[in-house]
C-alpha cells in the first residue's frame, strides 16, 4: 500500500506540471494587455519598463519557471514564516495581483473561509441526506419511496444550480414578506461577526439558501450511487448467509450490506469534492458570497492574469489531490484492490 501511495504521489507531479503548463499556455495567448489602462501620455519606454517590472519582458519558459518557483517555493515559505515567525521569504517576489498589487495568496486566504463554510457545509449536508435515502430506496426497490426518490434526484441533477438558486430567492426573499419568519436574505453578508445568539441566527439564515442549493445538487448524485451500490450488494451470497445465520434484518442491512456498499460511495464522495468547488462558482455569484469563485470571476473580467492563473491552478491541485485520496481510500477500504 505504501509503495502504491508513493508511486501515485510521484505520478501526480508530472500531472500537475502538465496542467500548470496548459493553464500558462492558455493565458499566454491572451490578447489582453495589462498596460491598456495606462494613460497614453506615458512614453513607450516607460511603458516597456513597467511591463518588465511585471515580469512580462522575459522569454516564456523563464516566466513559467519563475511562476512555478513562486508557487511551490516562495508561497510555502511565506506560510512557514507566518506560522513560525521565521524569515525565509523575506525580500522574495511573490505572485502579485495586477488588480490590487498585493500578493494573490493573501487575497485567496481572505476569501477562503466563506467558500469553505458554504461549500463544505453543503457537502456535509448532502452526504447526510443522500446516504439514508439511497439505503432506503435500495432496500425498498420500486416502492413509492424509491419512485419519489428517483424522481427527486433526477430533478436535483437536471435543474441547474443557477435556476434552483434563483427560484429559492424568488420564493423566500421576494414572495415572502420581509418581516416574516420564513423570509431569508438573498445576499450573503460577509461582514457579519458571529458573537451573540442573534448574529448566529442571522448567519444561519443567510447560509440556508446557498447551502441548500449546492446540497440538493450533490445529494441527488450521491444518493443514486448509494442506491446502485446497495442494490449490487443486497443480492450477494454473503447477505443470504448472514440471514441464514439468523442475524436480525437490521444488522444484516446496516452492518453487512451498508459497510460494503459504502466502499465505492466513499470514493465517489472524495472525487466529488473538487467539482463542488467549481460548482460554487455559480452559487457564489447568485448569492453574492465573496468567496474564491467570485474572486475568479472578477479577476477574469478585470483581466488579472496572475490571479486567474493561481486560482485555476489551485482548483487543479484540489482535483489531483482528491483523486489521489479517492484511490488510496479505495485501496484501504477494499483489501481486494491493493494495487501492488
Amino acid at each position: 500500500m505504501l509503495t502504491f501511495t508513493i508511486r501515485r504521489l510521484l505520478l501526480a507531479v508530472p500531472t500537475l506540471l502538465f496542467i500548470a503548463l496548459v493553464i500558462f499556455a492558455l493565458l499566454k495567448l491572451a490578447p489582453g494587455d495589462p498596460m491598456a489602462q495606462v494613460p497614453l501620455t506615458v512614453p513607450p519606454e516607460v511603458k516597456e519598463k513597467m511591463r518588465e517590472a511585471l515580469g512580462l519582458g522575459q522569454p516564456n519558459h523563464v516566466q513559467f519557471y519563475k511562476w512555478m518557483v513562486q508557487f511551490f517555493v516562495i508561497e510555502p515559505q511565506v506560510i512557514i514564516d507566518h506560522i513560525f515567525g521565521t524569515s525565509f521569504a523575506e525580500g522574495k517576489l511573490r505572485v502579485i495581483s495586477w488588480q490590487t498589487r498585493s500578493p494573490v495568496m493573501d487575497i485567496i486566504w481572505q476569501r477562503m473561509p466563506q467558500t469553505l463554510w458554504v461549500v463544505g457545509l453543503s457537502y456535509v449536508v448532502a452526504v447526510i441526506i443522500a446516504v439514508p435515502i439511497g439505503v432506503i430506496s435500495a432496500y425498498r426497490q420500486y416502492s413509492w419511496f424509491d419512485q419519489i426518490g428517483t424522481f427527486v434526484s433526477m430533478i436535483g441533477f437536471s435543474v441547474p444550480t443557477f435556476f434552483t438558486g434563483v427560484l429559492l430567492i424568488v420564493i423566500f426573499s421576494v414572495l415572502i414578506p420581509t418581516g416574516s419568519f420564513f423570509w431569508l436574505p438573498s445576499i450573503y453578508d460577509t461582514t457579519l461577526v458571529v458573537d451573540s445568539w442573534e448574529t448566529l441566527g442571522k448567519q444561519i439564515r443567510q447560509m440556508i439558501m446557498p447551502v441548500f442549493v449546492l446540497a440538493l445538487y450533490n445529494a441527488a448524485q450521491i444518493s443514486r450511487f448509494m442506491r446502485a451500490s446497495m442494490l449490487d450488494n443486497l443480492n450477494q451470497d454473503y447477505v443470504r448467509t448472514a440471514r441464514a445465520k439468523g442475524l436480525t434484518e437490521k444488522s444484516v442491512v446496516l452492518v453487512h450490506v451498508l459497510r460494503n456498499s459504502m466502499i465505492p460511495v466513499v470514493t465517489v464522495i472524495a472525487l466529488g469534492v473538487p467539482t463542488i468547488f467549481g460548482g460554487s462558482l455559480i452559487t457564489e455569484q447568485i448569492f453574492k458570497v465573496n468567496g474564491i469563485g467570485q474572486l475568479l470571476i472578477t479577476a477574469i473580467q478585470a483581466n488579472d492574469l496572475p490571479m486567474v492563473q493561481t486560482i485555476t491552478f489551485i482548483f487543479a491541485i484540489l482535483i489531483v489531490v482528491f483523486n489521489l485520496i479517492a484511490d488510496i481510500l479505495y485501496g484501504i477500504l477494499d483489501p481486494r484492490i491493493r494495487y501492488d
Binding site: F18, I19, L26, I297, I300, T312, V320
Partner: peptide, 23 residues
Amino acid sequence: TDLFLALPLLPLLLVMVMLFRQP
C-alpha cells in the same frame, strides 16, 4: 485522457471564453 480529466473544467472554460472571445 487522465490529464484532461484532472483539468478544472469550469474555470478553464471561463478563461477560454475570456481569451478567445475578441479574436
